[in-house]
């Protein structure tokens, strides 16, 4: 008997089936302004929230470029309008078609989209099914996300009920990378970004 069979045989011998699997009531966020709630939670975990009109995106990103002193940027492929805005940003280099994650590891910031925003916890959801660089949300020091207001949902349950099990992976980001491993002092930017900007249009 191999280990698999051994383990399973033992487990089946001790199967009792006394306790039913509890039902989980879907908790919707009722009577809550989702944008306000998201903003509150996102800022509470250290995110920087920027709500703006479409024609102001360029200015907002430019402001971030100045404050953070960004020289090299990686930008995901957006729709044509946003691509055009990104192309005009004043930086030394904009990478849009990296050949490996090594290139992304040397940029100062990445600009990406996301799939959902969860109001309950201020969480940004990335669902991977396509060619996107997964590590673009983790490698650079600064991460800028451009999202639409209608991407905000109430809870993680809602995300799961929309996505089902059909994905390669899901990545949830709630604030910047952080540690408290040295004397419980919170330090941001351990392995992932130190700053997370969300531009919501």
């Amino acid at each position: 008997m191999n280990s698999r069979e051994q383990i399973l045989k033992l487990l089946k011998q001790h199967q009792t089936n006394k306790t039913p699997l509890p039902k989980i009531d879907t908790t919707a966020l009722l009577n809550v302004n989702l944008v306000e709630k998201f903003k509150f939670e996102f800022e509470r975990v250290g995110g920087i929230f920027i709500k703006t009109a479409f024609n102001r995106i360029f200015d907002e990103i430019s402001k971030i470029i100045t404050t953070e002193n960004l020289r090299k940027i990686y930008a995901e492929n957006f729709d044509n309008e946003i691509n055009a805005i990104i192309k005009n940003l004043q930086v030394d280099e904009i990478i849009t078609q990296p050949h490996s994650y090594r290139q992304i590891s040397i940029v100062d910031a990445s600009i990406t989209s996301c799939d959902f925003l969860i109001a309950e916890t201020g969480t940004i959801v990335f669902i991977h099914r396509d060619e996107k660089f997964k590590s673009a949300v983790l490698l650079p020091r600064v991460h800028i996300i451009i999202a639409k207001e209608k991407q905000i949902v109430g809870t993680l349950e809602e995300v799961f009920s929309i996505s089902g099990g059909n994905f390669d992976s899901i990545f949830l980001i709630t604030g910047p990378s952080r540690t408290a491993d040295i004397e419980k002092v919170i330090v941001q930017g351990v392995h992932g970004p130190q700053k997370v900007y969300l531009i919501i249009v």
């Binding site: 975990v45 994650y101 997964k134 990545f171 949830l172």
Partner: peptide, 23 residues
């Protein structure tokens, strides 16, 4: 675990990705 409302990162991994840039 860490007195946080939600941890910074959660990875939910379903499958390997063949010939993708970084998985």
């Amino acid at each position: 675990a860490t007195a946080q409302r939600f941890t910074s990162y959660v990875s939910i991994i379903n499958s390997p990705r063949k010939n993708k840039p970084d998985s």
